[in-house]
Design a protein around this nucleic acid. Sequence first.
DNA 1: TGACAGATGCAAATCATTCGCAATAGCATC
DNA 2: GATGCTATTGCGAATGATTTGCATCTGTCA
Lengths: 143, 143
Amino acid sequence: MSGEIERYERFRQDLKAAGIRLTEQRKVILRVLAEADDHPDAHALFLRASAIDASVSLSTVYRTLKLLEERGAIQRHAFDDGRSRFENNDVEHHDHLIDLDTGAVIEFRSEKIERLQAEIAAELGYDIIRHKLELYGRRRSKN
Amino acid sequence: MSGEIERYERFRQDLKAAGIRLTEQRKVILRVLAEADDHPDAHALFLRASAIDASVSLSTVYRTLKLLEERGAIQRHAFDDGRSRFENNDVEHHDHLIDLDTGAVIEFRSEKIERLQAEIAAELGYDIIRHKLELYGRRRSKN
DNA sequence: TGACAGATGCAAATCATTCGCAATAGCATC
DNA sequence: GATGCTATTGCGAATGATTTGCATCTGTCA
Ligand SMILES: [Mn+2]
Ligand SMILES: [Mn+2]
Ligand SMILES: [Zn+2]
Ligand SMILES: [Zn+2]
């Protein structure tokens, strides 16, 4: 992918601009996150980071994830498996369909659903700050 | 509410039919669940049950909740506060809007959204087994 | 009423995530 | 390039919700 380097640079700039130190460990984690095109959990990211630089600890992975989430650079998801999963936040908003058999996560976006959600909230007197839409399903048997 | 007793009876019948012992503790927990019209977590249910019968332990609340969930009698929700919340499963399917300021949980149902979800899944080659739609919002300021 | 498998309370174990703390290392300055 | 201050790190211990092992109790059915 060509976007990985830009993505990494964006992370880097953001931290630098905020006066946050760019440590070796953070660089590695930023790189791993920039390269990720899936929805890894903290442990998976720790493994990927460790492979590049064994000095990265799980604690620092957690701390960096929290930092980036607070800064809006990444998103945290809570699918039904107990762990938090993360993904870059520089992509268009989308929701997820989780394959119950394989665990595969499929992304989709429905303008209509997004609009309906806003309408429903408005009718109830609310503004939506964020939302969560997850479909859990099984591959349709082809008979 | 008039439905509470029927609801309690339904729980009772279900366990009995499955050859599961109707212990004092289970009766109390079933009653508390039958009376609940909110989305309490395990600890809240434990408090309500304890008030009726101090011999009910938190462990048994957890065990009973798991039992009822497995039997499809109650539903487990995982809103963004870390704990599981429960509700009777004998009501029409609905989704939730959570007030970020008060924690209030508002129920709603949109036929259109339900339909759209099924369509999207179908297009992706999937059948939806279950889904989760949660809106997190703030009361619209009235100016 | 008796027997016995299933259920309970309690404490200890899990599991993901966070935290305290002493040691380390960015980075601005000289 | 060396220095100093402070943020950051790794480690292990703490957390908080939930589960589990085990000795003891109790429904249920004969
Ligand atoms: Mn995604
Ligand atoms: Mn509900
Ligand atoms: Zn959406
Ligand atoms: Zn729904």
